Amino acid sequence: MSFLHLESLTKRYGNNVAVQDMTLDIAQGEFVSLLGPSGCGKTTTLQMIAGFVEPSRGRIWMNGDDITSCKPNQRGIGIVFQSYALFPHMTVAENVRFGLEMRKVPISESRQQVWEALELVRLEHLEDRYPRELSGGQRQRVALARALVIRPPLLLLDEPLSNLDAQLRENMQIELRNIQQQVGTTTLMVTHDQSEALSLSDRVVVMNEGKVVQVDEPFSAYENPKNKFVSSFVGKTNLFACHIDQQIGSQAQVKLGDYQLEISVPIDIQGDQVQLSIRPEKLELTHQGAGQLNGCVRTRLFLGNHWLYQVDSSIGELLITQPNLGVQGAAVGEDVGIRWQEGAVRILGEQAHD
């Protein structure tokens, strides 16, 4: 049996369904992210697991126990909020000790546990400082230490890195993943940041309009999106509605502009109208006439480690990313060829008209 089991979990607010029939299993020690746009139901799911929101239907099981009706303080779950929710009048050590005091852990025991938690997040030298004296990343680590010091069976993270700037957020992603793997605590994170979910998680649960759309390992979710929504939300993509000219078994002939493409067809595809997906990094700019398609560069953006191109082609507008190899690359207005490797173009498991 899984460590955390959500069984047909549903939450309604009047006629609005925030979460619909969510069933999910999370293994002991696994790091899972709920990923989706605002209003998709991910935070409501987290709040139901924490006990802050009562489900309209369904059950929540943790380590074999039904905790659906348990109060939040009876669940023993560690939570890190988006705002960190630190007590401004308490020092770092006092903030971390708070959960232990609520559990009436003797000061002689809690002192060592607080030290170990601060050492885990590398803040033991700041134990006497107040939150106002800390950076955003340090406050985030205090909140994490406070959640972990009670040694929770389950750690819930509610957009924990969203208040940090881009560079600090990347650094904290590494810190957070290292800490989670070191401690081995089962972790469920809510985020709308695709790169955050992909980099931190063992599995990603993609949600939309209250429903689970796809549950997969990060690499599989990105490389093999189930449908148009997942393809567009989990990273950037180029989408095209196409017609299957001929199909033999699982292989089909599809015309992409002037190029005839042979491609594998998912088993759930019905009919001959399909949606093709091509990731921007799977496309490569080359000399005009040397690729499968020709185009003209409309826009070029320099993003540091890579270039982002907007190219007009015979099949429409294409987004193309190219690594920064220390050269300027194609210029705006330049005629170019566009090529890709076998397997770069995917048919999505969704009708073109859906």
Rank of each mutant, 00 (worst) to 15 (best):
S8G: 02
L9M: 11
T10D: 10
Y13L: 13
G14Y: 00
V17D: 05
V19L: 14
Q20L: 08
Q20P: 01
D21Y: 09
G29A: 03
F31Y: 15
G41L: 06
K42D: 04
K42C: 08
T43E: 05
T44L: 05
T45G: 01
Q47V: 01
A50C: 10
G51E: 14
E54S: 15
R57D: 12
M62K: 15
M62T: 07
G64D: 02
G64L: 03
I67K: 08
T68W: 08
C70R: 14
C70T: 06
C70Y: 15
C70P: 00
N73P: 04
N73W: 11
G76Y: 11
G78I: 13
G78M: 10
I79M: 15
I79T: 13
Q82Y: 12
A85M: 14
L86I: 05
L86G: 07
T91H: 02
A93Y: 03
E94Q: 15
R97Q: 11
R97S: 10
R97T: 07
G99M: 06
M102S: 05
S108C: 00
E109P: 00
Q112I: 15
L118G: 09
E119N: 11
E119W: 01
E127G: 01
E127S: 14
D128T: 14
Y130S: 05
P131K: 07
L134P: 07
G137N: 08
A143M: 10
R146H: 03
R151T: 11
R151N: 12
L156E: 03
A166D: 04
A166W: 04
L168W: 06
R169Y: 10
E170K: 14
N171R: 14
N171A: 11
Q173I: 08
L176A: 05
N178Q: 14
I179V: 09
T186Q: 06
T187Y: 08
L188Y: 05
T191N: 08
D193E: 04
E196A: 12
L200I: 13
S201Y: 09
V205H: 03
N208L: 06
E209T: 12
V212S: 07
V212R: 11
V215P: 07
N227D: 15
H243L: 09
H243M: 05
I248C: 09
G249P: 00
Q251E: 09
V254T: 04
S264N: 09
V265K: 03
I267E: 15
D268L: 02
D268A: 01
I269M: 12
D272H: 09
Q273S: 13
Q275L: 13
Q275G: 01
R279C: 00
R279L: 00
K282P: 02
K282R: 14
E284S: 13
E284G: 02
E284V: 15
E284D: 00
L293G: 13
G295L: 06
R300Y: 13
F302C: 11
N305L: 06
H306C: 04
L308T: 01
Y309D: 06
I315L: 07
L318E: 13
I320K: 02
I320M: 06
Q322A: 12
Q322P: 06
N324S: 12
A330C: 09
G333M: 00
E334N: 05
G337S: 01
R339G: 13
W340P: 02
Q341A: 15
E342I: 05
E342S: 10
A344K: 03
A344N: 04
I347H: 13
L348M: 10
E350K: 01
D354M: 11
